[in-house]
Design a protein around this nucleic acid. Sequence first.
DNA 1: CCTATCATGTAATCCGTTACATGATTAT
DNA 2: ATAATCATGTAACGGATTACATGATAGG
Lengths: 172, 172
Amino acid sequence: MASPVNLTPTSAIVLGFLDLVGEATPYDLKQYTARTVGHFWTFQHAQLYTETERLAKAGLLREQREAAGRRRKHYSLTRAGKQALDEWRKRPTTELAELRDLGVLQLFFGADPRSLGLVQAEAHERKLAEYLEIRKRNRADDQRGPLLALECGIEVERALIRFWKRMADSGP
Amino acid sequence: MASPVNLTPTSAIVLGFLDLVGEATPYDLKQYTARTVGHFWTFQHAQLYTETERLAKAGLLREQREAAGRRRKHYSLTRAGKQALDEWRKRPTTELAELRDLGVLQLFFGADPRSLGLVQAEAHERKLAEYLEIRKRNRADDQRGPLLALECGIEVERALIRFWKRMADSGP
DNA sequence: CCTATCATGTAATCCGTTACATGATTAT
DNA sequence: ATAATCATGTAACGGATTACATGATAGG
């Protein structure tokens, strides 16, 4: 009944949110992620449909489809799902993030640092502003994890702004 | 004859290197990338085989297979390939890098900041050391782009080290 | 009421990874 | 010579993106 599955980061995101909110439709998940992890880990909404289905098939999610009306699919963690999540959470990754920055790639292959620096610095400033805004709205009863992730984002954005500004100001 | 393709970042990497070195086998490309862009943008060697084939089919690369012996495939840019690369290079991305950091994701979903911080800080320190080493070996006639990309990597690693150290030292 | 936008889902395609496989070289 | 490792390549699979499509809701 439960076919084996390997947990991709996307899987963890789905499991993680279902753990937080108890039950959700793929569309709900899309909303949650867009406002949170979506800042540093995006995907198309379609993926949330396929991913939930995949995890359900693997026995990690329970699926209940509305009998009438929109016939939405509601998902929640099974015991196996909760366990898989806990294990994933417990094993700290040594894996490093890859920068995978298109801008840096362009720079690497000879794009003009100044024009690139200009647009990148500006884009990152906007992102930083967004983060700071989110942090300001934060309330005492918020989860700790998301806040910490936000701090990371802020730190990295600041580094990138410094870098791209240097590029923008560099001599010809 | 030249079927259309869309240029993924991987494509740009292949085109970019072929532009630098003139001609290469997929295996050569693997070597080049591993020591350079590979630091912030990795892929399996198999992908360089499929990607070169794909680009050749699209008319962006010329493919010459050795007639005898190992029958290696040698690739070089066609005029169309060179042009595609130039255009890619000329249009500065406004697209932002996504962090896509597994560690941050774990943090987000409630992993223990201290244990995670420990291993992550250490891993990033190693990476930074590697970068600094590379920078030290740099010679006057090196390309500019790769150096600048390296600077970016250094800046970001430093930010991440600061962040993860804070996590490691945080109270329970 | 009609249109635009939001909500919800499926299907097809494509890129990237994993797995497999074999031909050369080097080291012992 | 033989084993081990490097070099080179293909095939299969799976996950992610793109495209498509339709049902609801809200704004005019």
